[in-house]
């Protein structure tokens, strides 16, 4: 019944996989974009392995950030952490005004080149949306509901695990979704500080004026971001089944 919306995604996914497995078979598409003697398919490394490295980096950074951010958000929304709630809100508000590139650039002096600063920038930048969403979700559980939980004899811990956390999950996943999308973009820029990601392909294209490279890198990152965004949106919706029709 809900099969039709899946089709464009499946097509996108299979195209992505096909391109990664055998980029040469797509050469005819990119040939018109380059001068006669320039390579039409990225030739300075394996596109598939760069894609995997890209995804892996975003995945690890987002996972770590999610654990830390959710834990922090839980902490400041408990009675004993309430002292830090206003500060946490302000820091989050201000943190969001820091552009990802600036975070990346500022991490380099501290960490040098390579994957390190990119991971740190990804991690730091992924913290904010997850933290903000978790905090918002936990502080906006309707009063009648938390009251009912307590009134029915749940301990504070039970209220948290059985009511507050499940009700907040969709919004937490929403935060992870935002983090991941930003992460894909930031990881791409990470190549400017020598991180091994798909950004290398784009930058190689920019440096050698090779449109085909730029297009390949851009399309790969865009396809990945859209697919992951979509996957997490589906997860978000399935967690909200109690809300939808």
């Amino acid at each position: 019944m809900k099969f039709w919306p899946l089709i464009p995604r499946l097509i996108l996914l299979s195209l992505l996989i096909a391109f990664l497995v055998s980029p040469e078979s797509f050469e005819f598409l990119f040939k018109p974009l380059v001068q006669a003697n320039a390579p039409a398919i990225y030739n300075q490394g394996s596109l598939a392995s760069l894609t995997l490295l890209h995804v892996r980096m975003v995945f690890f950074a987002t996972c770590a950030a999610t654990i830390v951010a959710v834990a922090l958000a839980i902490l400041v929304t408990r009675p004993f952490g309430a002292e830090f709630l206003p500060l946490a809100r302000t820091v989050v508000n201000i943190g969001q005004t820091f552009p990802p590139v600036a975070v990346l650039a500022l991490a380099v002096p501290a960490m040098g080149f390579g994957n390190g600063p990119t991971l740190v920038a990804l991690f730091l930048y992924a913290l904010l949306p997850v933290f903000e969403n978790t905090m918002t979700a936990l502080t906006t559980v309707p009063r009648a509901i938390s009251d009912a939980a307590k009134g029915n004899g749940m301990t504070a811990l039970q209220t948290f695990w059985q009511v507050e956390l499940p009700l907040s999950l969709p919004m937490i996943v929403g935060g992870i979704k935002i983090s991941t999308v930003i992460g894909f973009g930031t990881a791409t820029i990470g190549s400017t500080v020598a991180a091994k990601t798909l950004g290398e392909v784009i930058i190689a294209g920019l440096n050698s004026n090779n449109l085909a490279f730029i297009l390949q890198g851009a399309l790969l990152v865009a396809a990945l971001a859209i697919l992951v965004f979509d996957l997490l949106s589906m997860l978000e919706r399935s967690l909200m089944k109690w809300k939808a029709a």
Binding site: T186, T188, I189, I202, A225
Partner: peptide, 8 residues
């Protein structure tokens, strides 16, 4: 919006 800036 999900398309990374550098890619766009």
């Amino acid at each position: 919006q999900t398309v990374p800036s550098i890619a766009l």
